[in-house]
Design a protein around this nucleic acid. Structure first.
Lengths: 219, 219, 219, 219
DNA sequence: GATGAATGAGTGTTCATTCAT
DNA sequence: AATGAATGAACACTCATTCAT
């Protein structure tokens, strides 16, 4: 068990952990099983990882941070830009329409590419993390998108400020933000690779853009 | 513990189970806790319920079946109707456009009303059932809707038969079916009552209808 | 395992626990071992006791409370009595000398009798409780005695109030309080029964009284 | 980690061990923690020390041996001297009274000075050694003192030989020996330095001497 | 109807220790 | 002189479930 392993034990543990977590979910996954599968004792696992949460974290932390960075880099600067324009002129609406969604497609492509780079990890977080600290990740991402979408919505509706938003406005904005994230989740959990993902995304963007106009023009 | 309880034990167990499952989710819920809260021993629970799954089932089975009936009553007969029409004439598209969504709003109203009648139960199934046999209920409902939506999609696209459906078509149909169900879930988990739910639903239907046309007219 | 046990399992567990704790001390005692010895599974133990601490508590809590009551009943009322006399007259010193120690012998007899009633338990607390919540019990008892002894010391020294106490006074009072408790501990851990304990106690009281006068008359 | 450490690793390990043992006691102390604190791996510890017991021993063995030597140098020669005198004349009692306690004060001063020289170590042995081979050190020291005190007691009582000692005599001798050791323990655990220790000791010696006469003159 | 007792397998985690390099 | 890796046994504790009464 020396010649063959040589520092690969950790890798093996991570692989087996990925398998176990993927099959049973965070809570039902058994560290004993992971170790048995990896051919080591439980003590070995605790040499490499602090605890169950840490083991799971080693599988998903990096991808999550990378994704957060991508989203924040994109949306926060966009929010700043929009805020500077706020209250200015009619072209805001036009801009939102014309450029907003093109932009979205660009970022979406980026996100999808990233999601598939770490497909396994994101599948884990998105569908098997209940019980871990990552179980609310989708919600957290929705929150991040929501600020951006609120601005877009205000512009497209022709509101002069966020203060004009009704309770119904806020509800549908939340839904659309949720749905945007859900689209990404759906793609990464239903497509086998990034190319396929991007291909399907075209229709989904069309769906979402159609949805937006449906909402904006409603009543 | 005799005069006061008398056959109310089961009711009390169900109430406490609802509370425990809602707070901790199916897996983390402890039967011990439920019994302690209900003021009985674990043995009592096993007199009324076969096991943990059965206890959970008693909380949600009826609402689920009721919902299934509503959906099936509506969609299966519609599918039959559509199938008889299949391949016939241009009016199908018109019908889909004109009546399809009106119809959808009607059924949606029905569904929402029903969901809120058993709000607690549906919240349970929809957000706290991981680990139980109900964890895939949303997916199962998506499947049911999908057949109906496939027909609608075929009609609106002007296809002569389902055989013309591409892989991309099937993918977006699946997504839209999923999204339809998600709309219901979103409403029942985010609105406090049926009236509020119906109110928010108008925008969501607009979103969905907009999305459909976005997809149908895409490219 | 039914006919023979019949509600005696708890008793058997307590007996085995007493044995295990006495042999290995609180920390090194193994619940597994206790259960094995008692012929039940670990789950059974947890039916009767909340956790390790609770099991230990069941062995010693009652005796401890009883002892506390005896001590408090005796000393707190005596402190009240002394406080009412405070600052009054010379007879206080006389009283302390003449009656103080007689009184002590009376209470000592009471305490010793009680200690031997629960000999095993007190041996446990006094010598094997490290790691449990009872590990500081002797210190706590010292504190209780200390208030009483401070009053006695003040009276015997002829001080008008506690404010006259020097740092050295306080130190020796603490030591003598500690020693008083230690006498009880010594007796219960070195004598086989109450009769023997009382017998030895006479000399120990003589030692303590002699010590007091040695201190009071010092310098 | 080379330039700076260079053979200071052992010293660092000992320092960290002292801290850990002092905080948690022998049993609860974690070698892992000690090594982490010292900035080395557990393997390093095992290069310098055989095992946990050996590590603890390295902190306390030398002081313990030193103390033993002081006590033995003093008491054993005294016992020899007394033995030679045994059965001789009345002056023995006088000697015991007059010189015995003066002598005790001298040796006590020596002991206290030594205890404070290795204050940390003795605090460790005296209050944190449960679970290690040193846990009975106080008892061992009591044994050593006991032989000496037996002789003193015989002399003061005017017995012609040890054979006259009753069970009660032996009991109170054991207690007084125990108390003598306890006085040292109390001082080293309650005083901050040797000067303070010696100061408080005067009263304690007065207490002990008073106690002795109380016992000798009893009944 | 319900209790009280008990099972047995499982959980994550910690520990002192070992040893090839 | 020290590391990094790994062992293996132990730990307290929790769980759903069973069943005689």
């Amino acid at each position: 068990m020396n010649m063959e392993s040589e520092k690969e034990t950790k890798k093996r543990l991570l692989e087996c952990a990925m398998k176990e977590f993927s099959e049973k979910g965070y809570m039902k996954a058994s560290l004993r099983n992971i170790c048995k599968e990896a051919g080591v004792t439980t003590g070995a696992l605790y040499f490499f990882f602090k605890d169950k949460e840490d083991l799971f974290g080693n599988l998903v932390a990096e991808p999550v941070m990378g994704l957060n960075k991508i989203i924040e880099d994109h949306f926060t600067e966009e929010i700043n830009a929009t805020n500077k324009l706020s209250g200015s002129d009619i072209s805001v609406a036009a801009l939102a329409k014309a450029e907003g969604f093109d932009d979205d497609m660009a970022i979406a492509r980026l996100v999808i590419k990233y999601l598939f780079e770490y497909k396994e990890a994101f599948n884990l977080i998105l569908t098997k993390s209940q019980g871990s600290v990552y179980e609310n990740l989708p919600d957290q991402m929705v929150e991040k998108v929501e600020a951006h979408y609120t601005n877009m919505y205000v512009a497209m509706k022709g509101y002069k400020s966020k203060k004009e938003l009704t309770k119904e406005d806020r509800f549908i904005i939340h839904w659309m933000s949720h749905d945007q994230i859900d689209i990404f989740i759906h793609i990464v959990t239903h497509c086998k690779n990034a190319r396929d993902g991007e291909k399907q995304m075209k229709n989904m963007i069309a769906y979402m853009v159609g949805g937006w106009f449906g909402v904006i023009n409603n009543k």
